[in-house]
């Protein structure tokens, strides 16, 4: 039992050594948003899926993974809109999610920013005209920045959020 347990520990040390640093070198920073100047290098993000196919969620997950490692630029995901400075929204806003999105936005303390991620958030994408679709994100809450793409690459999401932290 103890032999196996120590084996697992040593194996993990070996794995940590052989993996080394997996974070890729930084790409270009996105355009600096003047509204985000007061955040001074610290951005707490709350994410709302307003009706996305989850393609954008996978890419956002990658942006926070060890490879793209957006946390090094001062971006952190938080558990509550009350803690957040930035709301990231994906997908066309469905009828059932419109009021939830509005409530999440209103729960955030001022100053608050919204980043619409993906083509659906921008103009409903392939879902435009669907019977359950209320409209793009900008119809429900004011949008400060957009990341185009279906889905956008993690690099594009990292660049847009770095435009908010300014780092």
């Amino acid at each position: 039992m103890s032999g196996r347990a120590s084996g697992v520990g040593v194996g993990l040390i070996r794995k940590i050594r052989s993996a080394g640093r997996v974070a890729e070198p930084a790409g270009d920073r996105g355009e600096r948003l003047p509204q985000a100047a007061g955040l001074a290098g610290s951005v707490q993000v709350r994410h709302v899926d307003a009706g996305s196919c989850n393609g954008c969620e996978i890419e956002i997950g990658q942006a926070f993974s060890p490879v793209y490692d957006i946390e090094r630029y001062g971006v952190r995901l938080v558990a509550s809109p009350r803690h957040a400075d930035v709301l990231t929204v994906t997908g066309p806003v469905t009828v059932n999610m419109a009021s939830a999105l509005r409530k999440a936005y209103e729960a955030m303390p001022e100053p608050r920013l919204v980043v619409a991620i993906g083509d659906c958030a921008k103009d409903c994408g392939v879902f435009a005209g669907g019977h359950g679709v209320a409209g793009p994100v900008s119809d429900v809450v004011p949008v400060d920045a957009q990341v185009p793409g279906c889905p956008p690459e993690p690099d594009a999401i990292v660049a847009a959020l770095r435009g908010l932290t300014g780092r």
Partner: peptide
Amino acid sequence: LAGRAGGR
């Protein structure tokens, strides 16, 4: 240890 650059 996770291979990240990590925050400051």
